[in-house]
């Protein structure tokens, strides 16, 4: 099993979140990509989309097998999306912690702290 980066925070729905200046960068965990299988398409949120609450639907990751919703780990507004995933969605499989999906300007900067830390996420997925 791969190591879970200690600097990341996690939602129970398997997104990771990382502080970057005043933004929060979001991707999916290694555990999530492994469960999904080969990712072939990512439906990105639109820049400007507002998440009223943590857990709002933010996009869709489609593997060969199935479509899975992804959720924003925090409330806030989408300010940037990773357009490179359009041509290379497999990056989510190959380097899940280096492949971000969207960046959100959080409504409340303290919300990141409400997410699971690496140890908590590790316990959640039973590793």
């Amino acid at each position: 099993m791969s190591t879970i980066p200690a600097e990341l925070r996690f939602a129970e729905s398997h997104e990771w979140a990382r502080q970057e200046g005043d933004l929060i960068v979001v991707g999916i965990s290694d555990h999530a990509q492994e469960a999904l299988g080969d990712v072939v398409f990512v439906e990105l949120p639109e820049v400007g989309k507002v998440f009223a609450a943590a857990g709002d639907q933010a996009g869709v990751v489609e593997s060969v097998k199935a479509a899975s919703d992804i959720y924003s780990p925090v409330a806030g507004e989408v300010v940037e999306v990773n357009e490179a995933l359009a041509d290379g969605p497999e990056a989510l499989n190959e380097a899940p912690y280096d492949s971000w999906i969207f960046k959100v300007k959080p409504a409340n900067a303290a919300d990141l702290g409400k997410l699971l830390d690496a140890a908590g996420y590790k316990a959640l997925i039973g590793e």
Partner: peptide
């Protein structure tokens, strides 16, 4: 078996 690593 669904796959042994990568379905693609």
């Amino acid at each position: 078996p669904l796959h042994y690593g990568s379905q693609v």
